[in-house]
Nucleic acid binder design. Structure first.
Lengths: 101, 101
DNA sequence: TCATCATTTGACAATAATACCAAATAAACT
DNA sequence: AGTTTATTTGGTATTATTGTCAAATGATGA
């Protein structure tokens, strides 16, 4: 399927980070974390999917370097590691709005 | 697979736009278009995949509202419709760099 | 009109992503 | 130690994405 083409690594790496953001639940999580750290249980209530699903979404964000976690007692708290991604939402929103016309 | 949960539409829409960007070839195309309009043939040479593959990537970007196209003679030229997405690359790059440590 | 060049579309195979359930870990409390 | 609560991991079914080839479309020029 894939004829081994050298795709400059830089773009592959960027794509990996972008891909981690490119999901409604994960965008929702990022948005929530912009207001402070949250435990997995908070986030699972927010997005409404199974706890294991939410945990996997968080693992994706963590692997991409977008969030970090800390266990405190029984709970694991996640927080946003890269606030600059929030600036982007204005731009994305402008695209969404423009598309509506 | 999907227990019909109401995921605020806003995040779905944002995800659709983000998803359109979240691919190495498409990021490469966006980067190239930031330097001016290009025909499909230029872009296919750049990314190195089959012309039909590149055409489909462009269709994805167009559908997301990120690029616009114009046919001039035999060729179709694409240009970036939303330059603000470029600002984001600095942020993404900082994540990529941080991940390397 | 016919041939050619540039691009898009359709059909399809391969791979990746997503969500669930069940089981495994981890910490705290009895 | 055993129980409870919070989270992660493994297995698996479903769906989405990606890329190729072949055929279709569009515009130009002989």
């Amino acid at each position: 399927m894939h004829s081994e083409i050298i795709m400059p690594q830089q773009f592959e790496e960027r794509a990996r980070v972008m891909k981690a953001m490119a999901h409604a639940s994960r965008l929702m999580i990022i948005d929530e974390l912009s207001r402070g750290e949250r435990c997995v249980c908070d986030l699972q209530e927010l997005v409404g999917y199974d706890m294991s699903t939410v945990s996997k979404h968080l693992a994706v964000l963590k692997k991409a370097g977008l969030v970090e976690d800390e266990r405190r007692g029984k709970q694991v708290y996640y927080r946003l590691k890269v606030p600059c991604i929030l600036n982007f939402f204005h731009c994305i929103e402008s695209v969404v709005e423009a598309n509506k016309r």
